[in-house]
Write a protein that binds this DNA or RNA. Structure first.
Length: 870
RNA sequence: GGGCGGGUGGCGGAACUGGCAGACGCGCUGGACUUAGGAUCCAGUGCCGCAAGGCGUGAGGGUUCGAGUCCCUCCCCGCCCACCA
């Protein structure tokens, strides 16, 4: 055994042995329970960064652990390879996005392999592969048939200089184009969209099932879907027709003193009286040009203009003025609101500014009455009791809302209505590096879907990417010009491509049969492997990706491809890796640390340990050279420990004999079985060590019984680190404690050497999800020739012996009036009287109790005794 | 403004359903071994104090024999959403 710890020489060796053995291929244990561990696949721009190293290290530790627990584990990887950054880079240097992307994938793959991630590489996918995106196109066609895909008029950022649609990210300060700095305006253009709103209720209800998702993610999704229950009511403008408003507070409608339309509202032109039309138009034009944030941001001052028209409140018959204002959003509700200044803060501010009346119609259920409208300092927006509301006066708000909606429906001027914040998902992109949308435009037949047999519509290799003007595909005649599938006459292909969120919405299913050329994936494999058991990724995907992903799964369910509603049981959102200065890593700060050079210096195992030890997965961590040094030293310390205890390797087997020696064929323990049914045959060890009845061996051997206890407690602790919330940091800490304990002991007898050997074997096994290469090496050292053909990665996870985990004596804290004054060691089973006697014998406790009357004694078995004195 | 997280030594972080605050690591201090050590091993390390002891989990109050943990009031930090009628 090499005396020095040299990761450079050992890591590649184990990586190739794992690969040769196919140790990480899914589907090798058909009878075992499956586990699908997935990390969000990377967008391969440039080289790998620490964030990538972190996600995959977290997922890998879990996958390795689960494999050792006997599960059949699917742990795949692929590349989210289509997208804007590659295209933007191409605009700068003229290189083809595909060429660049493929190079980056090669770099990524190499670094991932160097980090020792236990991926099933045979299932690797890349979304830029036509064999992948053809199934995006296939889904498009299926969804078109089902009416889930449709064409609509959508809003887009239009650069007035480049004469093209640009992405949100490309709109920079002051609403200008990132590239040409021309103003960007909002333009209405036709686009393709997914009818995700049809699934709004279902997506909302599904959140209740997701108990193992972080609450903040489900809350964000809930808010994003944004169900609001309210009512629609028509305010009639005599001679011009009704203005339909949406409100969640129909109970306040008797306090409505004006109605407001969004500037884009279709009725604006119609209702404006001729003498005010010029002013109205000027306002609308100004709003159209204004920056979206500036216009509708919360800080923006409320601005509006009177149309001259009046509308009738159907509940009161009262005529109220109709205004147009910046704060009303065309795309929410009906684009028109009834304003109740006494009970809505925005309406209140607007009314104050323009001198509109304020009328109180809700009084707090308890407490002080509100003053009359003019004296009101701010809107009262809570529920209360109605007043001055005709027949509805005296009702509580909630009841009033129900009765008033019913009343509107009965009278035919409105009804209860649910509105959603969620919008349909517009997915057309005027880009090259994406999935071509499989549509052909024919003069006679309009938009004709490409027949399934003609898929994939392949992205032409020759691209004209300038970042300006028309979509790049429009400039490739051999792509554009085709014939109509219906009539065979000349026709043109759709030149738009799909949003790359499409790719990531179903990739987890493609891993199930990545080479399938008849369907997107094998439904039988889906029955085996889905849903994903644990999905690890950044919280920045809490809404968009994770909502699309849930939506797509539902569509696949309807297509009969999958068998459940939700794609993923447990979600883990990992924190970011900041620079050593605590700031986000960035070239600007010069604080960027990348995995490659760190592995050159310390090896993969140290890097992995650092990532897992620094904090629990959800928390942000700061890079720390000192901590990394410390973890490298820890591995060196483990290394030297094994070296120094070689004399224990051949110790007569006390413990480390396996319960079953054929890990590959081993079926996992039945669900709910105690841990000690697998792994080390710990149950019988106590007897072997101490003779019949597991009695404590005499003399200095007690230390070694303590060691054995510590070993088994460490196994327990590390096992728990993988259950529930992942607490790898405390698991690793427990391993450090075990190492420290081993350093303090010098075994002399065979029994002692056997106890040390047991600890070393367990240590190597427990270390292997975290630092797999070093663990593998050390495990083979201690196991000797018996293990020559085996791999620790495929061995069973150690089991602990509950009898050894439970201590037989405990330290009990002794308090006097709640302050710690001493501690006593007593048997676990010691009762109050026994502990009290011990406690009262303690010198320090004695002084504190001297001459005082004990009023009360609180005794918590195994923990503490508290004397309450007068 | 709303939602969700957080605030614990010099630093990263531990602490099960209220029960010995500070596990483990970093840093620091001392010692051993050494030609040497920025290697390694050992010991110490919350603060004040020579000690006895006192004080300590953002601030203030409360419940309790006992509060980092529960309740109330408030302050600060992070992320997400943000005029959603």
């Amino acid at each position: 055994m090499n005396e020095r710890y040299e990761p450079r020489s050992i890591e590649p060796r184990w990586q190739s042995r794992w690969e040769q053995a196919g140790a990480f291929r899914a589907g090798r244990r058909e009878r075992a329970e499956k586990r699908y561990v997935l990390e969000m696949f990377p967008y391969p721009s440039g080289a790998m960064h620490m964030g990538h190293a972190r996600v995959y290290t977290i997922g890998d530790a879990l996958a390795r652990h689960l494999r050792m627990r006997g599960h059949d584990v699917l742990h795949p990887i692929g590349f989210d390879a289509l997208g804007l950054p590659a295209e933007n880079a191409a605009i700068k240097d003229g290189r083809h996005p595909g060429e660049r992307t493929r190079e980056n994938i090669v770099l990524f793959r190499a670094e991932m392999k160097r980090l020792g991630f236990s991926f099933d590489w045979e299932r690797e996918i890349a979304t830029c592969d036509p064999e992948y995106y053809r199934w995006n196109q296939w889904f498009f066609l299926k969804m078109l048939e089902k009416g889930v895909v449709y064409r609509r008029q959508g809003k887009a950022n239009w650069c007035t200089g480049c004469q093209t649609v640009i992405a949100n990210e490309q709109v920079v300060d002051d609403n200008r184009c990132e590239r040409c700095e021309s103003p960007v305006i909002e333009k209405i253009i036709p686009e393709w969209a997914f009818r995700i709103t049809a699934y709004a209720q279902d997506l909302l209800d599904g959140l209740d099932q997701l108990r193992d998702w972080p609450e903040r993610v489900t809350t964000m999704q809930r808010n994003w879907i944004g169900r609001s229950d309210g009512a629609e009511v028509d305010f009639d403008v005599p001679g011009r027709g009704p203005i339909r408003v949406f409100t969640t507070r129909v109970d306040t409608i008797h306090g409505c003193t004006y109605v407001v339309l969004a500037p884009e509202h279709p009725l604006v032109e119609k209702v404006a009286v001729p003498e005010r039309r010029a002013e109205v138009r000027a306002f609308v034009e100004r709003m159209k040009k204004a920056d979206v944030l500036e216009r509708t941001g919360e800080g923006a001052p409320k601005e509006g203009v009177f149309t001259g028209a009046h509308a009738v409140n159907p509940y009161t018959g009262e005529k109220v003025p109709v205004w147009i204002a910046n704060f009303v959003l065309a795309e929410y509700g009906t684009g028109a609101v009834m304003s109740v200044p006494a009970h809505d803060q925005r309406d209140f501010e607007f009314a104050k500014k323009y001198g509109l009346p304020i009328r109180v119609v809700i009084q707090p259920a308890k407490g002080e009455r509100l003053p009359s409208g003019d004296a009101l300092a701010q809107a009262f927006t809570e529920d209360g009791v109605l007043e001055a509301s005709g027949a509805f006066s005296g009702l509580p708000s909630a009841e009033a809302r129900r009765k008033m909606s019913a009343h509107a429906e009965a009278k035919g001027f409105g009804k209860a209505e649910i509105r959603w914040h969620l919008r349909d998902w517009g997915f057309s992109r005027q880009r090259y590096w994406g999935t071509p949308i499989p549509i052909i435009y024919c003069e006679e037949h309009g938009a004709v879907p490409v027949p399934e047999k003609d898929l994939p519509v392949v992205l032409p290799e020759r691209a004209v990417i300038t970042g300006t003007g028309e979509p790049p595909l429009a400039k490739v005649p051999e792509f554009v010009n085709t014939t109509c599938p219906r009539c065979g006459k000349p026709a043109r292909r759709e030149v738009e491509t799909m949003d790359t969120f499409v790719d990531s919405s179903w990739y987890y299913a493609r891993y199930l049969s990545p080479k399938d050329d008849r369907r997107p994936f094998d439904p039988e494999a889906a029955r085996r492997w889905l849903p994903v058991d644990t999905y690890v990724g950044g919280p920045e995907h809490a809404v968009m990706h994770l909502l699309y992903f849930r939506f797509w799964h539902r569509v696949m369910h309807q297509l009969g491809l999958v068998h459940e509603d939700e794609p993923c049981r447990r979600l883990v959102t990992q924190g970011i890796v900041n620079g050593p200065d605590g700031r986000k890593m960035s070239k600007r700060w010069g604080n960027v640390v990348t995995p490659g050079p760190m592995m050159d210096r310390y090896g993969a195992d140290t890097l992995r340990l650092f990532i897992l030890f620094a904090a629990p997965p959800e928390k942000d961590i700061d890079w720390s050279d000192e901590q990394v040094d410390g973890l490298f030293r820890f591995l060196g310390r483990v290394w030297r420990l094994f070296h120094a205890r070689q004399d224990c390797f051949n110790a007569r087997d006390l413990s480390a004999r396996r319960a079953h020696g054929q890990p590959d064929e081993a079926a996992p323990a039945p669900q709910g079985a105690p841990d000690n049914e697998r792994g080390f045959a710990a149950g019988t060890n106590l007897e072997r060590a101490g003779g019949p009845g597991g009695a404590v061996p005499p003399g200095r051997n007690e230390d070694f019984l303590e060691l054995r206890r510590r070993t088994h407690r460490t196994i327990k602790k590390c096992t728990e680190a993988f259950q529930g919330e992942m607490k790898f940091n405390t698991g690793i800490a427990a391993l450090m404690e075990l190492v420290n304990a081993l350093y303090a002991l010098e075994p002399r007898s065979d029994a002692e050497r056997a106890a040390v050997r047991e600890a070393l074997v367990a240590l190597a096994a427990l270390l292997s999800p975290f630092a797999p290469h070093a663990a593998e090496e050390l495990w083979h050292e201690v196991m000797g020739p018996a293990a020559r053909e085996r791999l620790l990665a495929e061995e069973p996870w150690p089991a602990f012996d509950p009898a050894l985990v439970a201590a037989d004596t405990v330290t009990i804290a002794v308090q006097v009036n709640g302050k710690l004054r001493g501690e006593v060691v007593a048997a676990v089973s010691a009762g109050e009287a026994e502990v009290r006697a011990l406690a009262e014998a303690d010198e320090k406790v004695k002084t504190h109790l001297a001459g005082k009357a004990v009023r009360k004694v609180v005794f918590v078995p195994r923990r503490l005794m508290n004397f309450v004195i007068g």
